[in-house]
Structures are given as C-alpha cells and as structure tokens.
Design a protein around this nucleic acid. Structure first.
Lengths: 165, 165
DNA sequence: AACTGATAGTCAAATCATTTAGCTAAAAGG
DNA sequence: CCTTTTAGCTAAATGATTTGACTATCAGTT
C-alpha cells in the first residue's frame, strides 16, 4: 500500500453509518476554512517532494524564504523542535544545496543559515502561483466586501490566539 | 533546548537584515490567511499533547470524530500514510483508550476503528470552543458580507485545488 | 582582567515513527 | 471453482527527533 492518494471517494457505506459523526452545525464559511487548511497541507506535501525535501525541511525553507537568513536556534524555535533537530535539518538542507551555513558577522558562536538563490527561485516557482492566485481573488470583490473578508480573517486569527493560551 | 516555544520575539537585528526577505507584496487578507494556517498548526499541537497523542494520531482522531468509525485503510488513505502505519496508529490510539477495534459487520477481513465516547468528548472539549468561536464571528457581519466571505473562501479552496494538479 | 552564568551550535546514543516487503484470510468477479 | 484484489497485520530496515552531553563564546559582575 503506497501513501498519498488524495481521493477518498469512499463508498462510506451509508447503511453502516450507525454511530455516525456527531452533528456539529456550523456554516458554510467555517467548513470552507477547514477545507482550505486541509488543502494547504496537501499542497505543501506536494511542493516538498518537488523540492526533494521532507515536510519539516520545507517548513524551515518557508521561514528562511519569508524572513531571510536565520540562525539554527531561530529555526528551532519557529518549528518547535530542539536545536539538535535544527542542526540536522540544516545538514539535510545543505546536503541538497538549498542553504549554506555562513559565519555570523558579530557572534563567533553563531551561524547564519542562508537560503541559496537558486532554491529560493525554485520554491517561489511552486508557491508564487498559489499566493498570487489567492491574492488576486480579492480584486473581484467590492471595497466593503474586501474589508469584511479582512476583518473576518483578522478575527479568526484572534480567536485562535485566544484559544492558544 | 526544549521544543515548542511559540514566542519568536526575536530581536531579528534589523541591522543584519542584509539579504533580507524578498518583498512579495500581497494584501492584508492574504497575510492573515497564512497566519491562520500557522496558528492552526500550533493549536493542533497543543490539543494533541493535551490528549497525550502525537500530531499524526490526533489527525486520525479528527477524522474519526468528523466522520465516525473508519477502517484502518480509510485512515491510511486520509492521512496519506501506508496501511502498515495506520495499523500502528490505531495500536497507539487503542493503547491510550481513544479508540477501539470492532469487527466489521459484513466484511470479515475488515475492522472498524471506533472512537470512544469519552475521548470524543475530551477532544470536543478542546476543539469546540475554537470551532464555535470562529463560526460565531459570522454573526457580526451583514448578509452580503457573509456571502462575500463564503465566496472568497470557496474560491480560495478552488485555487488550491487548481494548484494541486 | 578574571569569574560566572547564559547562549549557540554540534554530536552520539536512545527513542519514536514510518516504510518496505512479505504473509494470511476473506471477498469479488469471472 | 479459480484467480485476482482487498484488508489488515508483522518484522526488519530506514528516517527523524529527542536526550544528554560537551566546547566555544558572549555578557555581565566584580
């Protein structure tokens, strides 16, 4: 059995759906938000294998691309792993040429992990169409609609942050 | 160094931000969407450890809770792992009492993995406040605003699906 | 300048998670 | 029946992460 088939066109055998899912009723928008979450995960898996790295290493790459050079400890903090793990992640990324280790200019203990331009470009090639495609959607809405969408998302983020403490 | 600190109140040393992040300009909403994605991941990690399971096993639980009893192969398909991995996931979930293995009523090869009511309740206790908190946000918008939000999310999902082929 | 405590990065060994490959039993379709 | 497919499992191999060192450096005290 190989992993990663995304179908799930399961018959589900509606007859057997005794003790089925508990019915939590939420609105369309809430369901769609959840769906986008799932799709993101699938998308990132796809890009990861396109760049020949595992999900975790790609996650590190995303941070490096979004924020520029980071130290191994910063990477560790952002990914929620130990610094030992970060060392190994940087080892793997270095091995495939996605990053280089540069000496930290002022702290001689430190290391700066710098994404290579070629890899940034490669990653961008996969990710930009999505980012831009999503951003362009906003053009089809009126100013007030756009404002509502932004406010909604800001509040969603806020609810998440609340629940995170 | 322990994992999972969520702060990242890094000084970032604005001076050193030479070769900084490439500036891809997108609108507020797009950034917020990305932020919600990150927060979701943090939230799920938190709930996972509250339920004493790893992220993957919690992912399986989410599917079981959302869809009701599933076979190990269905779990494997949904998580994108091998059926061997699914066996082990179900082993671990069984060990901590989150699921039971029941014989499939009609297929004697098959197994139904059933989430235990207590664990469903426990998981719901963590997840429902978030789900409901997010869904309630919609009440503060007008009908047309709500429609815009829903349409936006539907289209976002669509763009993701496009990029997934 | 010399001490102390914290921080940065790494390594080796142990632990945990997943895949690969192979196996048995049962179902499904000629 | 007979063949092929499907479901689930196991054991061994591989991968990934943590734990617990250890060294070098930094930053603040005195």
């Amino acid at each position: 059995m190989q992993p990663f088939t995304v179908d799930d066109a399961e018959p589900t055998s509606a007859v057997l759906a005794v003790s089925g899912p508990p019915q939590i009723e939420v609105r369309e928008a809430s369901k769609l938000l959840r769906e986008v979450l799932q799709l993101t995960s699938a998308f990132e898996s796809k890009v990861s294998s396109a760049l020949s790295v595992n999900r975790r290493d790609f996650d590190a790459m995303q941070h490096l691309i979004a924020s520029g050079p980071l130290s191994p400890s910063q990477i560790a903090r952002r990914l929620g792993v130990t610094t030992a793990a970060a060392t190994i992640i940087v080892d793997r990324l270095t091995a495939v040429g996605h990053v280089t280790r540069e000496p930290h200019p002022t702290d001689r203990r430190g290391v700066m992990v710098v994404p290579t331009p070629a890899s940034v470009d490669a990653a961008m090639g996969h990710v930009l169409p999505l980012i831009m495609g999503v951003d362009r959607l906003l053009d089809d809405f009126t100013t007030t609609e756009r404002a509502a969408i932004t406010t909604y998302l800001r509040r969603v983020a806020h609810v998440y942050q609340e629940q995170l403490r």
